[in-house]
């Protein structure tokens, strides 16, 4: 589950270090496919609105301006950032708390109910969230929660449960039984074992799922689109989308909004790339 440590190093490395010109060519080609749009976004976001129309689209702007970024920041960007942070933190913490409890119970418990619950979660992996948007909207409207951040947090968390539980279950199963047994011999109950044993041991898995769930919620679009409407409750992806409508053909400004909305995740990537990657391939990467 953790980042892949280079095991059985020497011989593998020798093979893997051989040159491969064809591969390198392909690799470079894809690099271009990835970088050209990203580069275009960056240079365009630095152009003035007028400069956009007559400049060579890939040239470095002759007089770069941060005006577009200021425009975006002036449009309540801070509030949307805060909303996104609240939604992400709320949903992630919620899903972590309930999933960890459930995973512990599933691994350390025996009852038929628990086995049944686990199967249900496994089945739940196949339920597409898109297909439930109409009834979720119906429920949220009936519960008078329409247009609140909680309306986004709760369903987002609910749909993250199956995978989170699955990953945590897989991880907890690897914890040797003896550790629990010896604690139990000391008279510890399940809540204490959960808190003082399972929790500290699960740290890597928890970090992994945290990042995975957080990124998914952060970038989520459909729930906020349907379940909120006012600017007060707007999250970043929705902001970027509505900003492009408001700013007609001011492409540089729209792209500046795109850059700003991605910046927090990019920063996270710069700091914790390894955890983020293992988080994203969580449960699949083995």
């Amino acid at each position: 589950m953790s980042a892949h440590s280079p095991t059985s190093h020497a011989p593998a490395a020798r093979r893997l270090r051989r040159g491969n010109p064809l591969g390198a060519l392909g690799g470079l080609l894809w690099l271009l496919v990835v970088l050209v749009p990203v580069y275009w976004v960056l240079v365009t976001s630095l152009r003035s609105r007028e400069g956009f129309f007559d400049a060579n689209p890939l040239a470095v702007p002759s007089s770069p301006t941060l005006e577009n970024y200021r425009l975006v920041l002036d449009h309540d960007f801070g509030r949307y950032l805060l909303n996104s942070a609240l939604v992400t933190a709320g949903a992630t913490l919620l899903v972590l708390a309930v999933s960890f409890l459930a995973a512990y119970a599933i691994v350390r418990g025996t009852g038929r109910l628990l086995r049944w619950t686990f199967s249900l979660f496994l089945l739940g992996l196949a339920i597409p969230l898109q297909a439930t948007i109409i009834p979720v909207y119906y429920l949220i409207a009936k519960a008078q929660m329409y247009d609140t951040l909680a309306a986004v947090i709760l369903p987002s968390a609910a749909f993250a449960i199956p995978l989170t539980v699955l990953i945590l279950v897989n991880f907890l199963r690897d914890v040797p039984d003896e550790l629990f047994e010896s604690m139990r011999a000391d008279g510890a109950g399940h809540w204490r074992m959960l808190w003082s044993l399972a929790l500290p041991l699960s740290r890597p898995a928890l970090i992994t799922v945290t990042l995975y769930d957080a990124l998914n919620v952060w970038n989520g679009f459909l729930f906020p689109l349907i379940l909120t409407q006012s600017p007060d409750q707007r999250v970043l992806p929705l902001f970027v989308w509505s900003f492009q409508g408001e700013f007609t053909i001011n492409v540089p400004a729209v792209l500046a909004a795109v850059v700003l909305s991605t910046l927090p995740v990019l920063a996270l990537y710069a700091v914790g790339r390894r955890q983020l990657i293992s988080g994203l391939t969580a449960g699949f990467g083995k």
């Binding site: 609240l86 933190a89 913490l93 919620l94 708390a97 951040l149 007060d232």
Partner: peptide, 23 residues
């Protein structure tokens, strides 16, 4: 985190707005 979560969810929940809402 748990404390923060509780705060977030209640805060968000209670901001349920009526027609007269808005900034």
């Amino acid at each position: 985190g748990a404390v923060a979560l509780a705060l977030t969810v209640t805060a968000c929940g209670s901001s349920g707005r009526t027609v007269s809402g808005g900034s």
